[in-house]
Design a protein around this nucleic acid. Sequence first.
DNA 1: ATTAGCACTCCTTTAGGGAGAGTGCTACCT
DNA 2: AGGTAGCACTCTCCCTAAAGGAGTGCTAAT
Lengths: 349, 349
Amino acid sequence: MNEHDAHIEETGSLSERERQVLLYIVEQFVTTATPIGSRTLSKLTDLNLSPASIRNVMADLEERGLIGHPHTSAGRVPTDRGYRYYVDSIMPQVQLSDNEQHFLQSRFEQEVPAAIHELLRTSSHILSRISQQLAIVAAPSLGRGVLQRLELVQVATDKVMVILSIRSGIVKSIVLHIRSEISRQKLDQVGVLLNERLAGLTLAEIRETFVDRMREAEADEAEIIRLFIDSSDRLFSERLETDAVCIDGMMTMTAQPEFDDPGRMRGLIELVENQRVIVHLLDSLSGGQSVTIRIGREINDDTLSDYSLIAAPYRFGQLDGTLSIIGPKRMNYPRMIAIVDYLARLMST
Amino acid sequence: MNEHDAHIEETGSLSERERQVLLYIVEQFVTTATPIGSRTLSKLTDLNLSPASIRNVMADLEERGLIGHPHTSAGRVPTDRGYRYYVDSIMPQVQLSDNEQHFLQSRFEQEVPAAIHELLRTSSHILSRISQQLAIVAAPSLGRGVLQRLELVQVATDKVMVILSIRSGIVKSIVLHIRSEISRQKLDQVGVLLNERLAGLTLAEIRETFVDRMREAEADEAEIIRLFIDSSDRLFSERLETDAVCIDGMMTMTAQPEFDDPGRMRGLIELVENQRVIVHLLDSLSGGQSVTIRIGREINDDTLSDYSLIAAPYRFGQLDGTLSIIGPKRMNYPRMIAIVDYLARLMST
DNA sequence: ATTAGCACTCCTTTAGGGAGAGTGCTACCT
DNA sequence: AGGTAGCACTCTCCCTAAAGGAGTGCTAAT
């Protein structure tokens, strides 16, 4: 009911028959990866219509931009809008079977992740395995995270490790390079100072007001405070230093026939290797309350115009992260949505 | 002069002419990626020999297993042994141009890495860019690293972060999950205890003797010490928790013609996604003193039989890491060796 | 020892010719 | 009017054949 609507241009309403035909085209194409002809459909459906009638319906659907054909005499293939209509109005809702649910549960209970990146790693691995798509799990955004305690640890003569314990149990650690040596005492003093002034605030608040809050202190321990101020963007950014997103499943996804094309494969590799695109993309979705679906061009990225994305937010303590899959548009939407949804709920516990 | 020799089966010595021909075959094939015929070679070289004579020489080389042809009537292609002979006995030594050296230097000086993984990331990125191959940089092995100081930080009610400061400025941090709460005081006591008993030892020593060293202490703080003992393999392993190796350059490497084959591409993706193979592989090389070259089947791994590997050790403080590239056997060996060698030296400073 | 010549092999490219699948249109049926 | 049957047409895909090209291996001559 918001920007999402931007994708649905007025399609008008379809007759029951048209819905049926579209349904079959999508579902057949999803499983067979080949364009669907009128004959096939006539036999397959329980509509009891001749191929010719089907063709008429198809022509209508094509006029509305829901299906197309790669060349004059090939079968029909859903367009982005076709998939969208299917997802919004035709598709059945499915749930994972009890077996699958239990399996996933047990996989999650198997190991209690101590650090956040272990959670990301296992969940992305599980997600990619069960979905057979590219799985992307983004670490929770720390912006709203409340700083519980900050610790400074001198790890070398010229390095200080800053450890931010965020309520909800996430730890962010950053190593800062210091120019002039600092005594352990002074460091402790600075630590106390920082805790006094920052504990209890969210990282977002800290980042915005850090300079102000440190104002008078600056005189005292000028150098080290200066360093903190200079690094404050990094220190208090909402992103972890390492492994902000975890991607898995390239291998399993490339088993699908669309990846027999080396060009396609290269695109995928570029995507995963850069990550920038993905990080940016997930940021743009982070507002959503439940499962978000983006199909083909709806993802505003040319490299992803042949893919679909299904994302769901999860909660980790009080923080929000995103879990998602990317795969060929030709994916089993009902099932994929069920998987992502279920896994997001599972992670939120 | 050791296991390396295993690859050189007695090839006998080649006449000057044979060396020349092999040289040209390798270098031509490296640049053109197509088999080399006798005609081409006759024109190209300054040997002033007719195609027929060249063919004789080629036949000899083939008998010795240095070259082969994909099918009866194709040009010649170097075999693994051919490359090996070329690398060992024919290949010129080259150096990077001053320009390139300066460029690399400036790239390294540009940013002083605070944490080790930043160093890995930048260096693997630089290496992949300049070599156009897959760059793999492994973090230094911590086994010989001397524990300078160990810090315990409670980061949540049920989590303790253990920070190991290794001499040479590497930091390894692990989050442990604790079952029953522990007071800050007790934690500090344990910290002091651990430092007393472990500081100054290498991680390898600690790992081996940890249980012994903790023996009497166990009674005192049974639970928490127990936890440390159970986790000691992880805590004191020679590998970092995250980002133990950093891989870059898939994208640039796949521009090469060998990767027009989707199967090949999948193999590569599998390799990079698993990393296990690579980690294991680099471990097996870590003894070397200088540049190590493995060609095709010399790498004992079927998935890598079409690739070559060039690796060099670097020193970080007192610790040894490995920096390497993997690419099609058809690579510019002299240049690649120069790059890897130079970069390893550069990193060691 | 080197070279010229020649037959032969094998790959690659090109062209052509069904076969198959599917469409779009028109005429016809109910 | 909606549904159906028929039919011509259009593509793709796959197979085959043929020509072209590159390169070898052998032999005989220099």
